[in-house]
Design a protein around this nucleic acid. Structure first.
Length: 572
DNA sequence: GCCGTTTTCGGCCCGACTGTTTTCAGTCG
């Protein structure tokens, strides 16, 4: 069994091992290839079958060859060889905070230390004393990293929906307590990646010291790891690391670009700048010593001849070329959403709850709601909305809000208990088993279907394919957003590539701090979805879920495909 | 190892911070 994720893992491991062997540029080359492979929307095998491995950014002759080996045999001889050269414990050492490849390598070469246990011994025996570059503090730092496994997680990403309320809380705390002008959470959080490793918060303020004081005093903050003049790093109580940076107003835009990333996007921006005789860093865009942009992101991109690029697209997947050509897609905006076809109410919903839902929908200028009137309860039984609730929903007063009745069912026959429930639309909630050949064929009838497919099913590109086929046959849209039952952004991109429309949940009627709607929109942006490709961006009278127009090509490098050099088959 | 529409060789992002340093190396993001 091979997979993109596993291949990416292997290349990351190769990079670590090369680091430990003291290689200079190869590790970064392997990491870049790993990042590209990981963000691929297509199975590596399929790319290889077309002979297009080398169109993947960062994949050249040598790595393409290794991918072929991996696909054929499930392993890479070069990797196996490296593993024999480097003791496995060294990789563990390198993952400890404060120890990088150079330091781990020195322990290995100079002290014969091959892992955490041996390093602990070496420290206890005083073998680090007198070693050049190792003073008391450094040794103590390493000792505590070795003794404290909780200090180890350099990695450990968590789902964005989990981090969302934390980020909001921190921003609110800063706004309330300190004299801050602009505040923005950057990093992969801003790009709305499915998982977030840490938070990067940028602020402008006339009083940085006060900002740090306020921040340190926030209840969520457990420990200050580092504090300088412009930057503070803290650990929250749950272990999440947060970097706070105070920047000057004239630098805010360039800092935001820089810290929003992605890394590959930034690298490409800089090389584009170099071509134009410009230099980009977090302080601005410079021609010589003259700042030509920096205060806003728009200025920064404009100074490079680019349209502003939405954060969710900044992954070096051709967005920079598109921005240069003025061909960026117009992404679906919150104001494009005209309804929400997937709203749940408990069967015994109190009147206030129903009224609040309707009021919230109006406040958001939604034109219609699809309320689930019947469906499966968590205990496996079925439930239907109470008569009271239905009547209350059915009398939206003078508002023009239109209501649809939605039935939520699995694939196949409608259960007898629900057969008599009147409905306008259906939501299909597939079981986690792969759909069979005849799955869903009975689910015809009312015009509009939304599949509620688990991303646990679809996280692997190949597992999604049969679902997309079913969705195509039935003409359903697919719901995108956070949580195990919706498509993540990569699955959403594939759905769009197979001409499916998306449904975006809005969180209407839910708690005000519910991030579902914002994250769903972010995922849709990562998939480069336009309003035309979102079913609930259509007016109530024109709801149709069929194909979203002409097929879109898979994303990739847009700047021409490089031809493989003939006759230069050099090994790594 | 990758990359390039001025390059097939010679670059490879770059700055803050820390600790150990009389000028810098390593880590981190």
């Amino acid at each position: 069994m091979t997979s993109n994720a596993e291949a990416a893992e292997i290349f990351l491991s190769i990079a670590d091992l090369l680091d430990l062997l003291g290689e200079k540029f190869k590790p970064e080359a392997y990491r870049r290839a790993a990042r590209s492979i990981e963000s691929l929307t297509e199975d590596l095998g399929a790319v290889a079958a077309r002979g297009e491995l080398r169109t993947i950014p960062g994949v050249g002759e040598a790595i393409a060859e290794k991918i072929e080996e991996y696909l054929k045999t499930g392993t890479i001889p070069y990797y196996e060889r490296l593993k024999h050269e480097v003791p496995p414990g060294l990789v563990e050492l390198m993952r400890l905070p404060g120890i990088g490849p150079k330091t781990a390598r020195r322990f290995w070469v100079e002290l014969g230390v091959e892992g955490p246990g041996e390093l602990r011994d070496a420290i206890a025996k005083g073998r680090l004393n007198g070693l050049k570059g190792f003073g008391e503090k450094k040794i103590e730092q390493i000792r505590s990293a070795l003794g404290d496994p909780a200090a180890a997680p350099k990695g450990g990403r968590r789902p964005i929906e989990e981090v969302y309320p934390i980020a909001r809380g921190l921003v609110a705390g800063l706004r309330k307590g300190a004299d801050v002008e602009q505040v923005e959470v950057a990093g992969s959080f801003r790009r709305c990646r499915e998982t977030v490793g840490d938070l990067d918060i940028l602020v402008t303020s006339k009083d940085p010291a006060r900002v740090f004081d306020v921040f340190t005093g926030l209840p969520l903050v457990a420990e200050v790891k580092m504090r300088g003049g412009t930057k503070e790093t803290v650990l929250l109580q749950d272990g999440l690391q947060v970097d706070l940076r105070v920047v000057k107003p004239e630098e805010f835009g360039s800092a935001l670009v820089y810290f929003t990333g992605s890394k590959d996007h930034n690298i490409r921006l800089r090389s584009l700048a170099q071509d134009q005789g410009l230099k980009v860093n977090e302080y601005g865009v410079f021609r010589g010593d003259v700042r030509v942009a920096g205060a806003t992101e728009k200025d920064v991109y404009a100074s490079l001849g680019l349209a502003w690029i939405p954060p969710e697209l900044r992954e070096d997947r051709g967005e920079i070329d598109r921005a240069a050509q003025g061909k960026l897609p117009v992404l679906v905006a919150p104001t494009d959403l005209r309804g929400d076809l997937h709203v749940h109410l408990p069967p015994d919903a109190r009147a206030e709850l129903v009224d609040r839902l309707v009021a919230d929908a109006r406040a958001r200028h939604l034109e219609y709601l699809g309320v689930v009137v019947a469906g499966p309860a968590p205990d496996g039984t079925t439930w239907t909305l109470s008569k009271d609730t239905r009547e209350r929903l059915g009398t939206p007063g003078r508002s023009s809000l239109r209501l649809f009745r939605v039935l939520e069912v699995g694939f196949g026959e409608i259960p007898p208990a629900l057969a008599s429930v009147e409905h306008d639309y259906r939501i299909l909630r597939p079981t986690l088993a792969a759909p069979g050949p005849s799955a869903g064929t009975k689910a015809t009838g009312p015009s509009l279907l939304i599949a509620h497919v688990g991303s646990s099913v679809v996280s692997d590109g190949r597992a999604l394919a049969p679902w997309l086929e079913v969705a195509r046959t039935l003409g359903t849209a697919l719901e995108v957003g956070p949580g195990a039952e919706r498509l993540d952004s990569s699955a959403a991109r594939q759905a769009l590539e197979s001409q499916r429309r998306l449904h975006l949940p809005t969180g209407v009627g839910g708690p005000t701090d519910d991030p579902t709607g914002a994250i769903a929109l972010g995922f849709a942006h990562r998939a480069a979805a336009t309003a035309h490709e979102v079913v609930n961006a259509r007016p109530a009278g024109e709801l149709s879920i069929g194909a979203a127009g002409p097929p879109r090509p898979p994303e990739g490098r847009s700047h021409g495909r490089r031809k493989a050099r003939p006759g230069t088959t050099r090994a790594a």
